[in-house]
Design a protein around this nucleic acid. Sequence first.
DNA 1: TAATAGCACTCTAATATAGAGAGTGCTAAA
DNA 2: TTTAGCACTCTCTATATTAGAGTGCTATTA
Lengths: 346, 346
Amino acid sequence: MKDPDLTERKKKIFSAIVEEYINTGEPVGSRTIAQKFRWSLSPATIRNVMADLEEDAFILQPHTSAGRVPTDKGYRYYVDHLMELRRITKEEEEFIQKSFRDKNADQETILERASKIISLLTKVAGIVMAPRLRCSTLKFIGLKLVAPSKILVTLITGSGLIKNSIIEIDGEINEAELNRISEFLNSELEGMTLSELRAFLTRRLLEERTSFYILLKKAMGLILNAPFMKSDDRIFFEGISYIIQQPEFSNISKMGSLLKAIEEETNFLELLDADIEGEGVHIHIGKENPFKEIQECSIITCNYSIGRQAIGTVGAIGPTRMEYDRAVSVVSYISDFLGKVLSELG
Amino acid sequence: MKDPDLTERKKKIFSAIVEEYINTGEPVGSRTIAQKFRWSLSPATIRNVMADLEEDAFILQPHTSAGRVPTDKGYRYYVDHLMELRRITKEEEEFIQKSFRDKNADQETILERASKIISLLTKVAGIVMAPRLRCSTLKFIGLKLVAPSKILVTLITGSGLIKNSIIEIDGEINEAELNRISEFLNSELEGMTLSELRAFLTRRLLEERTSFYILLKKAMGLILNAPFMKSDDRIFFEGISYIIQQPEFSNISKMGSLLKAIEEETNFLELLDADIEGEGVHIHIGKENPFKEIQECSIITCNYSIGRQAIGTVGAIGPTRMEYDRAVSVVSYISDFLGKVLSELG
DNA sequence: TAATAGCACTCTAATATAGAGAGTGCTAAA
DNA sequence: TTTAGCACTCTCTATATTAGAGTGCTATTA
């Protein structure tokens, strides 16, 4: 990702091409750029530079007598070296804060809202992945008998997620015992993640030889068998209609396969999951993406965290020709904000 | 909805037109129909009948020299009087049953699956509305102190829905008292709906003058303030990609506004909500629909019930040119089946 | 030597034209 | 009442033509 060290002028012209193309969606010609520079350079000169840029594979011509269009490689260079990051505007900031003011909202509502806001502000689709259970710290585990051998297991995470499972046990269990288990769990679990809790229980189980052993064993059975362990992490997707309005998707069959890919959420799960390692904003441009339906799209993602722990991902997805600077600023701001909102929930 | 009493022949020809159009998507001409009748009638004769049908506004010509296309009124007559209901096939039945075999699935998973199945079998979009809280009977209410003045309210309905809210109370409350409240509620609520419970508490509150009064009052506060009372009924939507593949939506802007309407779920909430009154399958054709984005679509809905109580709605939505007989059979079968699956969950 | 003006060339997209084909409505005959 | 025949209408497709945008190359200029 080192800077191939273009001359200043080349950079300026390339930036101008990218930005012009992002704005208009039309291949951009030498005249247009010359005009942008107030004719301080002639179209012919621009053309020479363009020929160079084309040799570097930063731009290409859709056909011989058309203007230039940035390639994936070009966009990559642009976002890595040329793009000026911009802060979100005051109005946008206020809008976001107002949207999250509602105190009574639960996690689901908040996440849904976040994805809607991203899509509104970036004019591309917003995508929010719910806090991953395996990264979340535990806050509370409730065990309650709802029928002779049915137990309601309730789990609250630090990010305000409340999950329930009803699990059927083999024998019967009495309420007092259940209370002892849940008291024990709650006294120990503070700040652990689910997998840490599992490890903890396993370890204790090996050390323990007293009557407490049975209790521990039951606790483990309850926690590990609950369906929420096979966490079907949810994804909130909003604003597909923005994408399909873009001219690059006027081709119906392209549109169709994109939609299908989006409906098949698991694709995105993997994709977002991969980004949870690593700091800051991730950008995936066009062909860099793992599956072909979205290889004319770019995805901007950023983790959100509670405390230091990254627990989920928010992002924006649109055509490669999207306003990267805007998307980056929005996604990064929202990820930050969402982390805070969810912490307060916990 | 009375039969305008067409002659037998007219009906047969009209049916043939509708079915042919549904299959091909092309305006159907007199030749095609004559062929379908193995030339027992000449195209010229068919044309005469068609002219009549056009006068009745059952069909129309997109332009002078084109074949005929059914109107909304035509479809309406077709589904009301001509369409032959068909049972779902053995294979489809098996497929559905297999899909719901998983014992550990929670309500959300089941509903999602139902909408996916509808879309798979009907080849149009499937839509499932989660059980309406206000129609569901209560099974269990759990109250649990998670912090000095924070109470986790858990509610389980007869349809297997588990809902949680954390509510903050003004003063403090001790665990023993909380247990008394929840015991009281659970002993009384069996089979009530939420609104019945509310009414019940209000009534008791008026009668009661003992120390129990305070308890009741607290119970009411807890139940009625919980966010789940403002039930944001969820909708599961699957298979939009089927719709956009249809030629009638090859027009991008039409597609766009349809998608937007779908993303704005509240529209559909109202629509489905209205259908919960009344038995059996409801069909809404084209312009009969309340908002313009879906006036080239038809919606087939059917309630699902637990016991006798209708609690939610499933449906299929596709272009007016859809296979009504197939959609009706699938939707009606699934609604039945879903009711049973959810009952077992409760 | 870098920048520019000029010019021939290429390719697309828009427009016009013509013809085929599908389907109709009407009329007259069976 | 049904049908055959026929003129007519309209769309759709293919083809040709043209305008325009943009290029690359070359010779010229500062």
